[in-house]
Write a protein that binds this DNA or RNA. Structure first.
Lengths: 340, 340
DNA sequence: ATTATATAGGACACCGCTTTCACGTCAAAA
DNA sequence: TTTTGACGTGAAAGCGGTGTCCTATATAAT
């Protein structure tokens, strides 16, 4: 905690210097219309001269308002979230908010702590990419606390609030369709933990695609793992031990897919010919990876922009109907997948 | 700006509920030693029951302190900064700070605006990765404003303050040494703008390596560009138009190198055999790119951790001597570079 | 029993700004 | 000249805490 003695020029000092009252000066910083040009100029000159800096904190305290937004993601080393955050930031700064950013590193307790901290800091709203779907204590707290909150990317089923995400089921379905069309029937599902809603939704798509094609999904080809490159590599290893190994793999996200393809390189397997690989997210790296990754675009930046917009709307009108924005994913076919 | 009526449980209410004075309750939240266990328990129970949330903002206002730190980077879509931020965050949260994060997108005016906003929000300190080295108005303002500030990654020469970076000159030198050892003499320098200190320092290393080897650097092989993949691709194009094209390229950073190698793929040129490519930063992607990129490790996460530490130290002791931490870079030789 | 000494807890001002409300001023309307 | 009313301004009370000072009670020492 920084201790900062003095230094701060106050509105009172400005007012004294300009020969007006503090209240008048206050109206000027907020450029109220009912102030004559002359006094306005005069006071502004004083501000300039004294090097006045508006104290938003004090102002917010008095006016019971907030100009900050808390944004919580699970990991910003993941390029997916970098893009998401770019969207969020861009939009929020446009609206004049300042952003508290934090990472949960996929820890529920961390998430709890962060949300509490943000509450203590009087955030005007929260954009949350939840760690998991079991809504923990703090999420509930936020609710009863009626801080405007928007969830994004992942959803908390019991929590009724604005949400922005994509149609995961549909996304996975098109990916699997693509593999089936290319003659694959043994398609592994790699990465993620089956107790998360994000996983379940993807799995629905996986299963649906098989059903639609009149095939049965082989659940012994499901290999869970952490959502990292290492996780992907390990999941691939497991899948290859299968007595009847897959000819294609669908990966929970691109990061997992990168891990898979790295491991394949080490094993001298070529993505697209020896084994088809499909990812999910279409992060920038997907197109530039070698070989380029077939993946499902999930518009992280758009999700970010929409989440920011939704939050802004809710702040302006807390009573409005909850809104859900579900973007439609899009398959990008690249070299990592091919005919069986 | 969010307007939030009521809702907030105040310390006064807690005190009333527990039958003590507000001051006593205040001492308890700050766990002062001079409070009996009994009253402490009692008041804490009331807090629990009423759902009290500490108002850090109000507390900071009164105590003239701050628990927030502003962090300004140029672009967090760049994995380099993702890693940097991971370091910063990890460290600062350890110390109990909350982070305001913002991106300048390499715009000076944006940087000015962001710093002002942070001042208005009473940040206790700032970690700044400057856009450029011409210290603009606001940086000067911050100084006279005596908010503790640490610069990182890039340096502002006229600004005397704590700094964390790496030895760019040395880093580039070892990279060029490596290329020269492999028989290259026509080595292009791609990316960056020559008016930044970051560029100049790298260029010093570039020139020094040639001198050391008794060779002359050919300045017609310098191609400036934006620090993006696209910039890299364009710079490569330019360099290949040279009447006597390079056999190796040194890229300002990994992002530029990725752009270069992508373009090479399109041109059917193979990094490491047709043209050696060396990057700078060693972001995670460098090792997994195909072909893996020879690059200079610049420890972004470490820089972040150190910057956070330095800031923390400065906040605790504003009068201390300014400190400069210069990490020594390290060359990672991979497949993108080879014998001429 | 009396004085000395902690020690818990209360009263009150204050951080820098906003807000309410009342007051003074001057122009136009009566 | 008086009334009306806009308009600009000032005084004072907070917003939710902290810091300082001061009192009441308990305990120990004499």
């Amino acid at each position: 905690m920084a201790k900062k003695k003095s230094g701060r020029v106050t509105l009172q000092q400005v007012a004294d210097h300009a020969g007006v009252s503090r209240a008048t000066a206050s109206l000027i910083v907020r450029n109220s219309p009912s102030i004559s040009e002359a006094t306005k100029k005069k006071v502004q000159a004083s501000m300039e001269e004294l090097g006045y800096v508006y104290d938003r904190i004090a102002a917010n305290l008095r006016s019971q308002s907030s100009s900050t937004i808390g944004v919580v993601v699970t990991d910003f080393a993941n390029p997916y979230y970098s893009e998401f955050l770019t969207g969020v930031h861009h939009q929020l700064e446009e609206e004049g908010y300042t952003v508290f950013l934090a990472t949960t590193f996929d820890s529920d307790t961390k998430q709890d702590k962060l949300l509490s901290t943000m509450l203590e800091h009087r955030v005007g709203g929260v954009i949350l990419c939840p760690v998991s779907d079991n809504s923990p204590a703090t999420v509930e707290k936020i609710r009863q606390w009626n801080v405007p909150i928007v969830t994004a990317v992942r959803e908390i089923p019991e929590l009724h609030c604005d949400y922005v995400g994509i149609n995961y089921k549909k996304g996975v379905e098109t990916a699997i369709d693509h593999l089936i069309e290319n003659g694959h029937t043994r398609i592994a599902f790699l990465g993620g933990l089956s107790d998360s809603s994000a996983w379940k939704k993807r799995f629905e798509g996986y299963r649906a695609a098989f059903e639609k094609a009149g095939l049965a999904a082989d659940e012994s080809l499901i290999f869970q793992s952490a959502l990292t490159r290492e996780g992907g590599a390990e999941a691939l290893d497991e899948s290859l031990k299968h007595k009847h190994p897959p000819t294609a793999v669908f990966c929970f996200n691109d990061l997992v897919a990168f891990g898979v393809m790295q491991r394949m390189r080490e094993l001298n397997l070529h993505p697209g010919t020896d084994l088809s690989v499909v990812g999910f997210d279409n992060v920038l790296e997907a197109a530039t990876f070698y070989p380029p990754l077939t993946t499902v675009e999930s518009f992280p930046k758009h999700i970010g922009i929409n989440a920011a917009n939704l939050l802004h709307k809710r702040i302006k009108d807390p009573a409005r109907e909850e809104e859900r924005i579900i973007l439609e994913p899009e398959l990008f076919i690249r070299a990592s997948s091919g005919r069986r």
